[in-house]
Simulated assay, not measured.
Amino acid sequence: MGQATWETVWMTVVSIIVVTILGILLGLVLFETNGSSSILIKILNWIVAAFVNIFRSIPFIILIVLLLPTTQLIMGTIIGPQAALPSLIISAAPFYARLVEIAFHEIDHGVIEAAEAMGATKWQIILKVLLPESMPALVSGITVTAISLIGYTAMAGAIGAGGLGNLAYLDGFQASNNAVTLMATVIIVLIVFVFQYLGDFAVKRIDKR
């Protein structure tokens, strides 16, 4: 049980780190390329939006199966916690990217215009206006994404990715041991509560409104 819990937490934390980076980058591209008059930038926006919409729409259990060849190529295996990472990241990053884009759009445009009027460069606006102003929403979004990822790890475990999902399926369901299934469920719920608490605490600390 302890090993399975550690595997679930490890998969979730590693995925969150990568998803946060990719999601912010994708969301930033969507935000910055939206409404551009340049054909090349419009094409870039369309490509990124298509990637986000497609992979955000595919059910996770199907995505795992579709990515098995890619997982084998990248990770060298299709079983174990490491093998779950590509599917977890590719499924969650597009979802978080949309939350990032929405967070950027909710920023008062007057603040951005004021920064531009003072001669701020594009990167200065991104680093000193967009990210700081949207930080509470970004943290809240990654909290929601993290909780979804915990559920995804359970589904991934059912097909050999390890963690509490694998334990509940093999040692619980297939062995007709309801106690193991119940205990794995309780631990997953506790992990969700911990991530939710940490996310809410972080939002309260950084939200200055």
Rank of each mutant, 00 (worst) to 15 (best):
M118Q: 10
P136L: 09
V111H: 14
A156R: 01
A93L: 06
P132E: 05
I107G: 05
P132M: 07
T143A: 11
I62G: 04
L73K: 14
T143H: 09
I54N: 05
P132Y: 06
L88N: 03
I89M: 07
L63Y: 13
L68F: 14
I90G: 10
I62H: 07
D108S: 04
S87V: 12
E133S: 15
V65C: 03
V129C: 01
F104P: 07
H109Q: 15
V52Y: 05
T143G: 14
I142V: 10
L68W: 11
F95P: 01
I125M: 06
Q72T: 06
V139N: 09
T153N: 00
I62A: 12
V52H: 06
D108Q: 04
A137E: 10
I126M: 09
V111Y: 15
L88P: 02
G80K: 03
L149I: 02
T77W: 06
I79P: 14
T145Y: 03
T77V: 08
P59R: 02
M118C: 09
P86W: 10
P81K: 01
L127I: 08
A158W: 06
T121I: 12
G80L: 05
I79F: 15
Y96R: 11
L85M: 11
I79K: 15
T71K: 04
I147K: 10
T145C: 10
N53A: 07
L67P: 12
P86G: 11
L85K: 05
G76D: 03
I112W: 13
A158V: 08
V65F: 09
A114W: 07
A156M: 01
I58D: 04
I64S: 02
A103R: 05
A97L: 07
I107W: 02
L66C: 10
Q82L: 08
M75S: 00
F55K: 13
V65M: 08
H105S: 04
Y152V: 09
R98D: 01
F55I: 03
N53W: 00
P81E: 03
I102S: 11
V52W: 04
P69K: 12
I62M: 12
H109K: 15
L130E: 09
A93C: 06
S148A: 14
A103F: 03
V100G: 14
E113A: 03
M118E: 09
I79H: 15
